[in-house]
Simulated assay, not measured.
Amino acid sequence: MSKVLFIVGSLRQGSFNHQLAADAEKALAGKAEVSYLDWSQVPVFSQDLEGQTPASVQAVRDAVAAADAVWIFSPVYNFAIPGSVKNLLDWLSRAVDLSDPTGPSAINGKVTTVSLVANGGHDQVADQYRTLMSFIRTNFVDQLTFSRVNDSAWADGKFIASEEVSTDLSKQAEALLAALNA
């Protein structure tokens, strides 16, 4: 069974993106093994740290290397990829062997996809992810899911995917699995 690693781009407890990830996990039930990446301790990227590879960075690299696919659930911050997610991807995209900076990275060649939960900026951020994920040499599955936050979630913290979002999420899961089996 394929291993799909979920990266939830918001570290907030009960984040709307984590709740969408839980819906995606249901869409993959019985079809793939899902795990969630703990990247909360990854430091800001610095070449001063790169030579010693912090333990938290090695742990996320190992988790990504062990996965067949990576699915990112991302908020939109100021119509852009959140800086924290970009920082994580910067660490993951660096060559494993520093003597060859063009060599493979932990995320190199992985099947990847992105879902976005935000109240605006979906198209702009999707384009940013398309460009970035291609540049860092992933096999990007361009079947994305965009969702707005339901109004009641701002009061009760409960994200509810619309029927359309649930359908899109199922299609995205199937596209991801098809890319893994291609």
Rank of each mutant, 00 (worst) to 15 (best):
D156I: 04
N150I: 09
E25S: 03
P54Q: 13
A173K: 00
K171W: 07
P82T: 13
L144H: 04
V141F: 08
L37T: 01
R137G: 00
R130H: 08
K26D: 05
T131H: 13
Q41S: 10
G30F: 13
F73R: 02
K31E: 08
L88S: 00
S93L: 03
Q124E: 14
V85T: 15
A29V: 00
D123K: 13
R130E: 05
F6S: 00
G9Q: 08
P104H: 13
D90G: 10
D127S: 07
V64T: 05
V96C: 12
G51V: 11
T145P: 00
D142C: 12
G109D: 11
Q19E: 10
L49Y: 08
L20F: 06
A106S: 02
G157M: 13
L11T: 14
A32K: 00
F159H: 01
G121M: 11
R137M: 02
G103W: 08
V117I: 11
Q143D: 15
E25P: 00
R148Q: 14
N150G: 14
S134C: 09
V8Y: 00
V125P: 06
A21K: 02
A24M: 10
D100N: 15
T53E: 15
V57F: 11
A126K: 13
N108V: 03
D23S: 12
L28W: 00
L132K: 06
E163I: 01
L180F: 05
Q172S: 14
G120N: 12
V42C: 00
S147I: 04
V44C: 15
T112W: 11
S147P: 03
G120M: 12
M133H: 03
Q13G: 05
A173S: 07
D97M: 02
R137F: 00
S35D: 05
Q52K: 15
R137L: 02
D97W: 07
K31W: 03
V149M: 09
A80C: 14
N181W: 09
F73V: 03
Y36D: 01
N108E: 10
A126C: 10
T131L: 15
L180A: 01
E174L: 06
P82W: 13
P75K: 08
L89C: 02
N17M: 02
I160E: 06
A80V: 09
A126I: 07
D100Y: 05
D142F: 15
T167N: 10
A126Q: 10
V125Y: 07
T131D: 11
T102Y: 09
Q124D: 12
A59S: 15
R130T: 08
E163A: 10
N87F: 03
K31R: 15
A29Y: 03
L89F: 01
L88A: 01
R137W: 01
S10A: 05
N150H: 13
L144N: 04
L11A: 14
V165W: 04
W91I: 03
L89H: 01
D97I: 08
D23C: 14
K158V: 07
S2V: 06
A178L: 11
